[in-house]
Design a binder for these strands. Structure first.
Length: 908
RNA sequence: GCCGAGGUGGCGAAAUUGGCAGACGCGUACGCUUUAGGAGCGUAUGGGGUAAAACCCUUGGAGGUUCGAUUCCUCUCCUCGGCACCA
């Protein structure tokens, strides 16, 4: 018997598949497009087991769909710009481009080992000018439409990487690349107005969107839509205060001071709780609030400035860890527009400049406000009760802050209203008096895309001293990234040091001008790569519109759970922008999204070189073969599982493949040597008694059904289990055949044990039919493409031999793929071109079932019965059982519950 | 604190209109067969209990609904992921 040597089988078939060009799809002529997408990998160096998990396992899905008759497009590319390349290059004293190109070459070769159906004619590599030209083009379109703009705000600054980061790249106050504490700096940079799409990016509720709930909820939370109101508080000046006196109610219009010395200033405050406005007894401004320069009285300015200085020096993390509230009184007062009361204005860390208006009012129904007020002895006034009776308790006991909605008290004309009604009524009044209005606030901020680094897409702008920021003309794209640049981070963009590159003429006035030295965030590049995959060589436009219409939206998109907030949301934003450009005519770019899990090292920790727990896929391929890795990764657990790599587990599936191999060897050699009657057993002879055996048929159809449905539902692990089960069953038949034969032999002739293995093969003929074996191989083919191809071709050889002898012709199973390439394919019937087996639902249903018998809900017996047994029949059988009788005795069942083909339960 | 996903044998895990808990695999034990390799084949394997049965217990914990709950409801504990002074 030939031995199963995966390396031999796999290299041979990979070569053959490549030569014949069986894989890849003609995007133009495809009739049944299916776009299978996996997040493009970063060109980081070596392919690791995570890449296998992402690509090789999804390849199972792709091959399955292909056998089902779809034209599956499964492209690969590389996310190649960005900090890791730059940092690695600095460390190794290389150029980022050289480092990246080398990695791409290595990874491309490693990808081949997977045996995937990737389309190498449609590769997108983001660091090539032919790709990033279109980044620049998109940027210019955004500029035209006011979606891209230059702005200056407090931004996330990473002191180690020396660049600005987007909010989504800050993880718990730290840089997502290097982990350094993020500082807030006021920096002028390019933004994308993603907030224009905030409302559209909100996922609709309870939709039949096939995206994970965690992504939908996560994005909606991040967008953070809040409905509330903006309220204007007039600031009372020192002069006024002197007249009005402390604590005295300021009558309406007293703040309407028109004289020169009393400039009127307004503080805008956002709140979602207008219902507590009557209880607003102080205002809190963020330390960076710009209005402070206008309202702080001179005698307070030292203290205020000191506090501003201290909080400006704090990083985000420090601010967060300093949970204890701090702040200082500004010396200014403002008027609560609804109550007319004069209240103090404070500044404090806990008011954030980045949210709402950077100012809030403090009241007795917010824990933070209460904590702050208590510390600084600011009076509080509860204005909400849960019910009338609780009022006194709430006022006296500020330990328990009531933050829910309730009934208003001490709130003038609004007293007695519920929060919900009062909110509307108060906003209405504020609007009438022009002291406020309803407003919707989002947590989502505009996306900062400027990076003060080298390895990225140059922003296509020319800064002219006369004309300002002038967009590069479309015909001058791409603005190529120069190679010879000192790219070590110095706090200013490295491109600024490339003097020759920087110097240009202004396209508008023709005068001397300079290029924009900043580059784009890498997330810009990968926000639209899946469009480019469709048309990577297009020189006139980012992609062909008609082609996108045909292939988009992506049918299924696999990727990591960590891309919930950044990548997948940005891609949605780009898609909506493309829709506005009339490039696409749909709203969402992927019909279905599946998050994959993470494979940890054998020690249950994240794989890392420093830990020494990295499983090298190339090594595993050598020992067990790609088929085993694919199968193991599919089998390890649910696809979103986070689980360690188990060296024993891969040996388990390797063992399984060896058994498949063994079965194949036995079965084919048998058919080869068997006579005509035997060879024709199986599907070609429906009268064959073996085929007719209901149990065999049932197992086959049941397995087809299970594997089909499980792959469709991304439940690869149970699909593999079903195949294992069927193999166990089939080998059980072989085993039984062997036993029968040995018994027969010893009975007939007492031949001493010289039976060699090829001899015993006779018995298989009567066990495993050709149909069973073929179907088994087809079902296994997406998981283990190489070994199944090998065994399949072996089988075909035998078929053609019998054909040469003038026996019946094999039916042409090549009817699914009509591509001309396939027609002249030398291995004219690769197993991967076969149609996916179909099952008969009736046969998938078991004929014989085990009926469970319960007494009072407790299992007491199991009865093997025919499916479809009637209740009367079941009752009769069950009552005849001793085990049941023991529990029922002569009691009369009060009630009998009968579930068809499942159980019968006697209640006594 | 908020949002999301989870908690089932020694381990990875199965089990959905509520109906046999633990499929499949790993590991372990015993046996066989070869061998001496860490290979192959077979049997057993949730816990207790028994000579063997019978029987009892068991899906993080406590209640509840039901003839019947891993599954539904209430409360609670824990783990993982995300967000977080968001007014």
């Amino acid at each position: 018997m030939k031995k199963y040597i995966p390396a031999e089988v796999e290299t041979r078939w990979q070569k053959k598949w490549k030569e014949t060009g069986l894989y890849g799809v003609d995007l133009k002529s495809a009739k049944t497009p299916f776009y299978l997408l996996v997040e493009l990998p970063y060109s980081s160096g070596d392919l690791h087991i995570g890449h296998w998990f992402a690509f090789a396992v999804t390849d199972i899905f792709g091959r399955f769909k292909r056998m089902q008759g779809f034209d599956v497009f499964f492209p690969v590319g590389f996310d190649a710009f960005g900090l890791p390349a730059e940092n690695a290059a600095i460390k190794r004293k290389l150029h980022p481009q050289d480092w990246t190109f080398k990695n791409i070459e290595t990874m491309t070769n490693q990808f081949q080992l997977m045996g995937g159906i990737f389309d190498w004619d449609h590769v997108a590599i983001t660091c090539l000018p032919e790709y990033y030209k279109w980044n620049q083009w998109i940027f210019l379109k955004m500029l035209e439409r006011g979606i891209a703009y230059r702005g200056k705000t407090l931004s996330n600054w990473c002191p180690v990487d020396k660049t600005v980061l987007a909010d989504e790249q800050v993880i718990s106050g730290k840089c997502d690349r290097c982990g350094a504490d993020i500082e807030l700096k006021e920096i002028s940079q390019w933004f994308l107005k993603i907030t224009d799409y905030a409302e559209e990016l909100l996922w609709p509720g309870s939709e039949e969107v096939d995206w994970p709930k965690s992504v939908i909820e996560g994005q909606n939370n991040w967008i953070g839509k809040r409905e509330g109101a903006v309220i204007r508080f007039e600031v009372v000046t020192e002069g006024q205060r002197d007249k009005a006196g402390e604590g005295i109610e300021v009558k309406e219009n007293t703040s309407k001071v028109g004289s020169d010395s009393f400039e009127v200033r307004t503080i805008e405050v956002f709140t979602t709780r207008v219902d507590t406005l009557f209880g607003a007894t102080f205002l809190v401004l963020a330390p960076e609030h710009p209005i402070l320069t206008k309202i702080v009285p001179k005698n307070n300015s030292n203290e205020v400035e000191r506090y501003q200085f201290i909080s400006a020096g704090k990083s985000q993390v420090e601010r967060k860890e300093m949970r204890e509230k701090t702040g200082v009184f500004t010396g200014a007062y403002a008027i609560n527009p609804i109550s007319g009361k004069e209240i103090p204005v404070w500044i404090a860390d806990y008011a954030l400049m980045g949210y709402g208006t950077g100012a809030l009012f403090g009241d007795a129904h917010d824990e933070r406000d209460v904590e702050f007020a208590k510390k600084y002895k600011i009076p509080l006034k509860p204005t909400l009760v849960t019910g009338k009776k609780d009022r006194d308790k709430l006022i006296l006991n500020l330990e328990e802050v009531f933050t829910g909605e309730g009934i208003l008290v001490d709130s003038g004309e609004f007293s007695g209203m519920t929060s919900a009604i009062a909110k509307k009524a108060i906003v209405k009044k504020l609007e009438e008096e022009k002291t406020g209005q309803a407003q919707i606030q989002y947590h989502l901020h505009d996306w900062s895309i400027s990076r003060q680094r080298y390895w990225g897409t140059p922003i296509p702008i020319i800064n002219c001293p006369k004309c300002g920021a002038v967009p590069v003309d479309e015909k001058d794209l791409p603005v190529e990234l120069p190679y010879d640049v000192d790219f070590t981070p110095q706090g200013k963009p490295p491109l600024a040091t490339a003097e020759a590159w920087m110097k240009v003429k202004c396209p508008k006035c023709g005068g001397d001008a300079q290029r924009e030295p900043e580059t784009m965030d890498g997330f810009f590049d990968n926000s639209w790569y899946f469009y480019r995959y469709l048309d990577p060589k297009n020189e006139r436009e980012p992609f062909d519109k008609l082609r996108a219409q045909k292939w988009m939206p992506v049918d299924i998109y696999f990727g990591g759970a960590e891309h919930t907030l950044g990548h997948t949301m940005y891609s949605r934003f780009f898609t909506k922008f493309f829709r506005d450009l009339d490039l696409v005519d749909f709203e969402e770019y992927a019909k279905r999204r599946v998050n994959h899990g993470v494979i940890l090292g054998p020690d249950s920790h994240r794989m890392s070189k420093s830990r020494g727990n990295v499983v090298n896929p190339d090594e595993e391929v050598k020992s067990y073969g790609a088929d085993s890795i694919r199968l193991y990764l599919a089998f390890i657990g649910p696809y979103d599982l986070v689980a360690p790599w188990d060296p024993g587990g891969i040996r388990g599936v390797y063992h399984f493949l060896q058994r498949v191999w063994g079965l194949g060897e036995k079965v084919t050699s048998d058919w080869l040597s068997g006579d005509q009657v035997r060879r024709s057993s199986g599907e070609k002879n429906p009268d064959n008694p073996i085929t007719q055996q209901p149990e065999n048929l049932h197992m086959m159809h049941k397995t087809i059904k299970k594997v089909t449905e499980d792959i469709e539902n991304i439940k690869f692990n149970t699909a593999v289990a079903a195949l294992m089960e069927w193999l166990n069953y089939l080998s059980g038949k072989v085993h039984a055949g062997k036993v029968t034969k040995v018994a027969k032999e010893s009975k007939e002739s007492k031949v001493s044990g010289t039976s060699d293995s090829s001899d015993s093969s006779d018995s298989f003929v009567t066990s495993v039919t050709r149909l069973e074996y073929e179907v088994f191989l087809k079902l296994l083919a997406p998981f283990a493409p190489h070994i199944t191809e090998e065994l399949w071709q072996e089988l075909q050889k035998h078929e053609s031999r019998s054909m040469n002898h003038g026996k019946e012709k094999p039916k042409n199973l090549n009817n699914v793929f009509t591509r001309p390439k396939v027609a002249k394919f030398i291995i004219h019937d690769s197993i991967h071109s076969q149609p996916w087996p179909k099952y008969d639902p009736a046969l998938a249903q078991a004929k014989k079932i085990t009926l469970v018998v319960q007494v009072n809900g407790k299992l007491r017996d199991r009865l093997p019965v025919e499916a479809g047994i009637s209740q009367q029949e079941a009752e009769k059988l069950a009552l005849a059982s001793d085990k049941v009788q023991r529990w029922i005795g002569d009691a009369n069942p009060r009630k009998v519950i009968f579930v068809n083909d499942r159980l019968i339960n006697f209640v006594i």
